[in-house]
Design a protein around this nucleic acid. Structure first.
Lengths: 119, 119
DNA sequence: CGTCAATATTGAAATATGTCGAATCAAGGC
DNA sequence: GCCTTGATTCGACATATTTCAATATTGACG
């Protein structure tokens, strides 16, 4: 709660989105707008440990390894996931700040006039 | 824990998304993944009346009328908005079921293991 | 009817995206 | 040091998306 930070999130209702904000938010939604990336995110999020090795993600799809790597990169660039290399393997985990922010933004649409400020 | 409905919403964590569900959800996120469409949605949502005439949306952008019409069509096809013709004009309004559903889905990512089932 | 104004649809061009195979980079083990 | 294995980057190609101008459709009003 509290402040709404610098580039922080206006509700989608309340007042129309500025062009630049719309562009930033669109980047994240665009990252979510692909079935493969959604499933990747889901696979990562569904792990109790909170993280998954790429070596487990890749064989879950009928796609080449570079393709999976590419999708993971887009998720990373959108701020939806983080990666960390530990030895031979690379592990991905969700960044809940981002998913929460997007969720709050979407909630604000139906939250009518009194939509809580999304911090 | 009751059913989870027909085509209804799994949380993104809990269990990985099935291919078909991922494809459906991706369609909606893809619709949200464009700055123009986000601003359109925002303009529609920010109206106290809940609806806006296309004749007010079109001049709000530096884009041709067919282009705006096209974006509105994609929002409609994604289930994010509804349109109604009244006489000469066409009015658009948000479909909160859809935005709420997507919000809940995103919330479930950080909702960890115990994520509430999203109806 | 005929015309005008508001939207939608069509067709085409430029750009972006998803995908692969080949090449490259990183870390471990011989 | 030199392979081997895991992961990313590069280059290329097919497809999808964004956008416009032109055309069609819909409804209101003489």
């Amino acid at each position: 709660m509290s402040n709404q930070g610098e580039g922080c999130c206006e509700p989608l209702s309340e007042e129309p989105l500025a062009e630049q904000q719309a562009a930033e938010l669109a980047t994240v939604f665009k990252a979510l707008g692909d079935p493969v990336r959604l499933r990747l995110l889901s696979l990562i999020a569904s792990r109790p440990s909170g993280e998954v090795c790429v070596c487990e993600l890749t064989p879950a799809f009928d796609l080449s390894q570079p393709t999976i790597s590419h999708h993971l990169k887009l998720l990373r660039q959108a701020g939806l996931v983080d990666s960390e290399r530990r030895g031979t393997w690379v592990y991905y985990r969700v960044r809940p700040e981002t998913t929460d922010r997007m969720a709050a933004l979407l909630s604000s649409v139906s939250g009518e006039r009194a939509a809580a400020r999304v911090g």
